[in-house]
Amino acid sequence: MATRVKQEPVSPTSRDVSSPPPGVNHNSQIVEREQRILNLLQKSTKAISDKEILLEIPDLSPQDRATIINNLLQKGFLDVFKQGEKLVYKFKEPSCPSKIKGADNEEKIVYSIIEKAGNKGIWTRDLRVECNLDQTTLNKILKKLESEKVIKAVKSVAAARKKVYMLYSLEPDSSVTGGAWYNDQDFEAEFVDVLNQQCYRFLHQKKEAVKNCKDGPIVAQNMASASSKDVWKYISELGISKVQLAVQDIETILNTLVYDGKAERSVLADGSLMYRAVESLLPPPGIVRTPCGVCPILKQCSDIGSINPNNCVYMTEWLE
């Protein structure tokens, strides 16, 4: 996208004797109009287009409009975006100029887009679309900003090999890093499993402890239950985690226990979550006690054909 609004050639107009010399008046008019457009920008929550500007100042010439926009752009009061075929303008606070001292408009735009992405960052590709620069130019800018430690690239867990850019000083959001469960792109499956097992151990022990409780089932169940905080405390004290885990992280693990059928969750009146170990309703069913239950080729097994109960290797092995 052009950083300058193209100026259209001015057609000579006849002078009006009564009006002040066009040059002087024109300039102050432009300054005044710039202010008005700036106000308009400030007022709007979303980007405004040329149409809105014309509504505000109907007799604004395209030339002047271009001048004003460029001025405001220079001063850092707005961003220019492309919406479909037209340009739109959005107000922004002119940010610390020191950061972009000496930078040209292109860099400024790239910077502002990255800044807007906050701590979630923005993909290279999306960045390119927004600022409308070509790849090489963009890469140059990015390299420059990176070397100046203005921005940084972070690998995202959402997609391997893709990077997001964000301001250097920001802490990447957990959706990017994967939070506690990711160590540099790799999902720490073993770590998660260990936590799962430890949480279960904690709950199971609690349950065993109330086995001979004489005070009735509700008391027993309450004593066997633990809040997510309780479990978090236990796990933290175990010291098996290199990273600091939050209560919410532990809740995620506890939820996997529920999905393992090993624990049940209940919600208290105050919204806190309680967990307790539970026993399966049934013992393993008959099918999985025979080879057929774990047989990978059960579908092909029949009376005719080379896979049948009489010559089944798994059966033979199992029967020995």
Binding site: T290, L298, C301, P309, C312
Partner: peptide, 9 residues
């Protein structure tokens, strides 16, 4: 099927 197989075997 498993029952059939067990009995047949």
């Amino acid at each position: 099927k498993a029952l059939y197989n067990a009995t047949t075997r």
